[in-house]
Design a protein around this nucleic acid. Structure first.
Ligand SMILES: [Mn+2]
Ligand SMILES: [Mn+2]
Length: 451
DNA sequence: GGGGTCT
DNA sequence: AGACCCCAACGCTTC
DNA sequence: GAAGCG
């Protein structure tokens, strides 16, 4: 809700690194004229490359390093060259490391081996049972909280150490109502995440996480965190990456205990990157973010989503659909990791533009929120490094504690569909009914056709 | 959640 | 000791 | 360069 953005930023340091322009090449002449007018111009950025510390060996910290992208013709200013070499503009110690510093491996100790999730360990809730079913079908060994662990969670008064998945997580303020109208506490949020973990984690594994804590609940101020805080447990693995400001260690969700720590930290929604740590500039998801403006109805969103679907059908692209828990819908196109984020964004931009021309009464390409009234924006600008959407099975900071829930395309015809149809209370039954409808997001590797 | 400062 | 304040992002788009 | 946006 209220976001702590708009903080004064350090003046001239944010100058563009971007020069070379990319344009869709095969547009009709009329479209080209319009595109010029709309300034849909996509820039090829200078990119930072990353390598794993030791290929094939899971490491605590992955190392990102700048590398000159010699394929891009550009004139660099002195300032840009300086920035490229990583002169860190900030004062904190970690930020001053040179980008090419070698990575460190930290032993990840467990207090005990996580127990095998045997049938008797699985809590007798629809969510835990459904998650276990799905995980079994997927043959993943990611497990959720056991029955005894959930009992122990309920036994903690308001603060205490909780052993889950072989880790100790210090939980605090468990009674704090993050969703006051629904009377859902932080304990309820934790209980959801540690149960859905086996279904959810495959979509977050190896994807750097942006966090948006809501310490005062859904009506309070939230703030963004990308760098793993110093007070976070050492056993939470991270991915080290250099952005324009400096080196940061992004949290990676690999196990149930990390979800417990995040939820305790009032991180309500989880925002994973569209790319994975071993190839961070090459996303495996292109996302189409349908954002209704004030005055647009969910029916309108559905109508636009159907057109997106038929466009993708014509292009022979399979895509996955999910509710956002707020008012729009998210479409994920699983792609082969051969396109840069610029190319991914360019594809979605062109798609958005074509659909906007097809249904100008429903779709707007306007940037300013105030001028979008009554229409849907197909937000292609999401396809950027470091920019994220709430991922599948993420809770959203809204009334009822809605969950971003995968749905089948044909469910768009169900008049009972609502953007907040599934919540932390009902997702278990939903999963028991339909299973995990987002599977293909991890297994398909499609090529994007030229538009 | 943590650090600093003021009362 | 407690009250209070501040901080914890970033990259593209548009004017 | 600065404000808008997510
Ligand atoms: Mn959206
Ligand atoms: Mn959006």
């Amino acid at each position: 809700m209220a976001q702590d953005q708009g903080r004064p930023s350090a003046g001239g340091r944010h100058r563009r690194l971007y020069r070379a322009a990319w344009r869709p090449q095969t547009l009709r002449r009329a479209d080209r004229g319009r595109l010029r007018g709309r300034q849909i111009r996509l820039r090829r950025a200078r990119r930072r490359r990353v390598r794993r510390a030791e290929p094939g060996v899971p490491s605590q910290t992955h190392e990102a390093a700048y590398r000159q992208d010699v394929t891009v013709q550009r004139r660099a200013t002195a300032w840009q060259r300086e920035t490229h070499l990583g002169s860190a503009p900030t004062g904190r110690g970690k930020r001053q490391q040179v980008a090419r510093k070698t990575s460190t491996r930290v032993a990840r100790s467990r207090v005990s081996a996580p127990s095998e999730a045997t049938a008797t360990d699985i809590p007798d809730t629809s969510l835990s049972k459904a998650a276990a079913q799905v995980a079994k079908k997927l043959r993943t060994d990611i497990r959720g909280a056991t029955a005894s662990e959930l009992d122990a969670l309920d036994a903690i008064k308001t603060e205490g150490n909780w052993e889950v998945g072989g880790r100790i997580v210090h939980l605090t303020n468990l009674h704090k109502l993050l969703f006051p109208e629904d009377r859902y506490s932080k304990r309820d949020l934790i209980r959801y995440y540690v149960q859905v973990a086996p279904v959810m984690i495959p979509y977050y594994k190896d994807r750097p996480l942006s966090m948006n804590p809501h310490p005062d609940g859904i009506h309070g101020k939230s703030y963004w965190v990308k760098d793993k805080p110093d007070y976070a447990p050492e056993w939470i693995p991270t991915f080290r990456y250099q952005d324009q400001k400096g080196l940061k260690d992004w949290i990676l969700i690999e196990e149930v205990a990390t979800l417990a720590w995040l939820a305790n930290h009032a991180v309500i929604d989880m925002h994973p990157w569209y790319s994975r740590v071993d190839k961070p500039e090459y996303p495996d998801w292109s996302v189409v973010d349908l954002d209704p403006a004030e005055g647009a109805t969910f029916k309108d969103v559905i109508a636009v989503a159907k057109v997106v679907k038929s466009a993708l059908d014509h292009l022979k692209l399979k895509a996955l659909l999910k509710t956002t828990g707020q008012s729009g819908l998210h479409v994920y196109i699983p792609v082969e990791r051969r396109y840069t984020l610029e190319e991914s964004r360019g594809f979605v931009a062109t798609l958005a533009h074509m659909i906007a021309e097809l249904m100008p009464d429903k779709v707007t390409e306007v940037w300013e929120v105030k001028r979008r009234t009554g229409k849907i924006r197909i937000d292609y600008t999401q396809n950027v490094i470091n920019k994220t959407l709430a991922g599948p099975y993420s809770v959203r900071p809204a009334l009822r504690a809605p969950v971003s829930t995968p749905i089948a395309w044909r469910e768009l015809d169900d008049s009972r569909l609502r953007p907040d149809k599934w919540t932390i209370k009902t997702l278990g039954d939903r999963l028991l009914e339909v299973g995990d409808l987002f599977h293909d997001a991890l297994t398909l590797h499609q090529r994007l056709p030229a538009l």
